[in-house]
Design a protein around this nucleic acid. Structure first.
Lengths: 210, 210
DNA sequence: GACTTTGCTGGACAGTTGTCAAGAAATCTT
DNA sequence: AAGATTTCTTGACAACTGTCCAGCAAAGTC
């Protein structure tokens, strides 16, 4: 959130490479907005440019080609997911507090950043067909897995037990529930957040053994 | 599996509507092959026609437009998934036998029908952006959920316990593991099937209470 | 065999796509 | 202020897209 493109009316004088990086970030944010709305298949470079303050030529000035842009977007998006639950993990002093905090943030991001999550699952599916995306997608998956693992081990610690599944398994399970919620949210937004909360809080204890 | 297009060298004389349906099925099978290879985003009607014995004009003779074709494909694909594990469920006489049979079929379909599964997760992601696909995708999800539920309840029955989660939760969990395997299979096919087996067999017992 | 219906072909269409490049504009350097 | 460099605009391009249709071939009907 530190680097937005709107912090200065005129493009602030920044030294060299930093300025290029700023433009890249601004373009990536615009692109992510459009991608989240339309999905990978329906998003063209011109559409991205139209929904931004730039023209379609600029995109090719800062990115080699379309995949380069999308790939950059994925990598940029990664930094937003990394520490989403870190504060909750660090401040919680009981298992319940951790669970409540985690579930709260989870449903919050589900509701408030729906397009981003839609896009994530879209891109992960695309990565199965385009190897150029695979590494970046795998890196994010790794990051998310570590995030879930941090939460689960801390949860076990507070309860006084240990996890009964490894990190990839735990991530796949929670992610399955979350993706179900994201897909369901597109069709019927009303009941989904509560259902997600119920289900995750039902599953979490099953992954810990006293 | 009953209706393939190759069972007669010359188009067998079939009465009226049936013949149309046969052509539809043949086109759908061709389309599914291409879709599974390239994914939704990269598949064009011409590509579908090229990889088949038909010309691109025929597609529009049998389907109103692209979405109509894809939608038909999804619905056709559905019939293949429905009863994949039914035999295992019906013949298993112990929990272990059921688990082994289920896991065997699961890894088998993962390996042998990878493109289909890739496509499924792709299409489910697309359904978040195109409402026209939503109903068909939701129907398949429902079907898969029931399939998992049948397996889990039978598994519980054989163990002498009862499930501790509801059907949607159980499906989301198992599906999370399976999708992880499908995505991972694209990058590194070797170890994935065994990992999937391990993880699912670790999770299954946790969903049953004595 | 003549005629109608059905099935299919192959080309044409208008629109969109990613990519590129020539030059204008803004910025920096001296 | 003049020249050099970076940044951006604009228009063009070839390729590809979904869609449509005029015409042809085959099958069915009388």
């Amino acid at each position: 959130m530190a680097l937005t493109s709107a912090d200065a009316p005129r493009p602030a004088r920044v030294s060299g490479i930093d300025k290029i990086e700023r433009r890249r970030v601004a373009l990536a944010e615009s692109a992510l907005k459009t991608l989240g709305e339309l999905g990978y298949a329906r998003t063209s470079l011109r559409e991205i440019a139209n929904n931004s303050e730039f023209t379609h030529g600029v995109v090719h000035y800062y990115f080699r080609d379309k995949i380069d842009l999308i790939s950059y977007c994925v990598r940029y998006y990664k930094t937003k997911c990394a520490q989403r639950y870190d504060e909750v993990v660090e401040t919680a002093t009981s298992a319940d507090e951790l669970a409540v905090g985690f579930l709260g943030k989870m449903t919050q991001t589900l509701v408030e950043e729906t397009p981003m999550h839609r896009l994530w699952y879209d891109l992960r599916a695309q990565s199965m067909f385009e190897e150029q995306l695979r590494d970046d997608v795998a890196a994010i998956d790794q990051l998310l897995e570590q995030m879930i693992w941090r939460i689960l081990t801390r949860y076990a610690e507070l309860i006084g037990g240990t996890p009964t599944v490894d990190a990839p398994t735990a991530y796949a399970l929670i992610d399955g529930l979350f993706e179900q919620a994201v897909v369901g949210y597109a069709a019927d937004p009303d009941r989904v957040p509560d259902l997600l909360t119920d289900r995750v809080s039902q599953v979490l204890p099953k992954l810990i053994a006293a």
